[in-house]
Amino acid sequence: MKPKVAIVAAGSGSGETGGAERFFLGLRDALQAIGLDVELLHIPSVEANFDTIEESYLRFYDLDLSAYDGVITSKAPSYAVRHPNHVCYLQHTMRVFYDMFETEFGEGSPGLNRQRALIHALDTAALKAPRTRKLFAIGEEVASRLRQYNGLDATVIRHPTNLTGLREGSFRHLFMPGRLHRWKRVDLAIEAMRYVKAPVELVISGAGEDAERFKALAAGDPRIRFTGWISDEDLLALYQDALAVLFVPQREDMGLITFEAFHAGKPVITTTDSGEPARFVEDGETGFVTAPDPVDIAARIDRFAADPALAEAMGRKGRQAAEQVTWEKVAVALATALELPFTPSAG
């Protein structure tokens, strides 16, 4: 009989398919591919206010997972579960109580700081041994935060995208996919376009709470186009014909956009404070890692616009780097940590 494993997924229940949702599906499929019986459990986690956040921690703590031989968690607060064979492959803690606290609240009120301290204490207790047999992180950015705020070490294993059909086409427009949220710094890309000399279009896809603000900032520049939410088919087409992919978030956990761009044979322009993308993009080889300054970003855009062959060559190197990141490596590491028998592929 195959070992039975639960992947406990914390989610808003919005039904949207983003990076987190693709992560859970990719992890499930990878574990099944090495011979495990995997069930993906979607458990609501509401972050509307601190009361609902506390309720979410309790919801996971109270889960009965005794029917499973092993449990894998990832996002906060799923790792509050209780199971003797629990491994966490951490996507992120609640960032608003961590590295983005000052960005959102400044010094914070006494009440907010008490809440922050409580979240840190809960997370540290839940993530350290023996409650968690082994702690993994999806990237160096997440592992660094764990060391800084929780005093915990994690093994880093990057995972790929499970968006299929990515391929190289022509090199026409700049492409910026993703959630339209202030932490993604779409405004920085819009500001950079004011300094771009080349007649190149910036296509921005996705939806989010800051969409209207970004559209207002871009008003009057005919080179900037917003598509709104798009299907995977349209997403693939925009990747396919991109000159380069612009990805300039603030301290991003992972950023599957980087891997998707590389698999489409496209270079990535990112910034030194963009977190994991800045660690994975090799400056001058697979894209550009520049200062988070609109003038500097514009200079890199103009360089690609003047030399599409350079973009093509960098994109080719990016694809080679992305191909080394596989779901099987992730699945084997997690199954080994759970001490469950598995069958790796012959390849």
Rank of each mutant, 00 (worst) to 15 (best):
M1A: 14
K4I: 06
K4H: 07
V5T: 09
V5M: 07
A9I: 00
S14P: 09
S14D: 15
T17R: 06
A20P: 03
E21M: 01
L25K: 02
R28S: 05
A30M: 01
L31E: 00
Q32E: 05
L36F: 06
V46I: 14
A48W: 06
F50A: 10
T52K: 06
Y61T: 10
L63C: 11
D69G: 04
V71C: 07
T73S: 00
Y79L: 09
A80L: 12
V81G: 06
P84E: 07
N85E: 01
N85Q: 02
N85K: 01
C88V: 02
H92Q: 13
H92K: 05
R95Q: 11
F97G: 06
Y98N: 13
Y98T: 14
D99V: 10
E102D: 04
E102Y: 04
F105G: 02
G106V: 08
G106K: 05
E107F: 06
G108R: 06
P110E: 01
G111E: 15
G111V: 14
L118C: 08
D123W: 02
K128M: 12
K128R: 14
A129H: 05
R131I: 07
R131Q: 08
T132Y: 12
K134S: 10
F136V: 12
F136H: 12
E141D: 14
V142Q: 03
N150K: 14
G151R: 04
L152E: 05
L152C: 05
L163G: 01
G165C: 06
E168Y: 09
F171C: 10
G178T: 07
R179E: 02
L180G: 02
H181I: 03
V186F: 01
A192G: 01
M193D: 03
K197R: 08
P199A: 02
P199K: 03
S205K: 04
G206T: 01
A207Q: 14
E209M: 13
D210G: 07
A211W: 12
A211G: 11
E212Y: 11
E212H: 13
R213K: 15
K215S: 12
A218H: 10
A219R: 15
G220L: 12
R225L: 13
W229C: 07
A237W: 08
L238M: 05
Y239T: 00
Q240A: 15
A242F: 04
A244W: 01
A244R: 01
V245G: 09
V245S: 09
L256G: 03
A264F: 11
A264N: 11
G265F: 06
T271S: 12
T272F: 02
S274G: 10
V281Q: 05
G287W: 08
G287R: 08
P294F: 05
D296C: 04
D296M: 03
A299W: 10
A299H: 13
A299V: 08
I301K: 04
R303W: 05
A306T: 09
A306V: 09
L310Y: 10
A311K: 08
M314I: 00
G315P: 14
R316K: 14
G318V: 10
A321F: 11
T326K: 00
T326P: 00
W327I: 01
E328A: 09
V330P: 03
V332I: 15
A333M: 07
A335N: 09
L338N: 04
T343F: 09
P344D: 13
A346L: 15
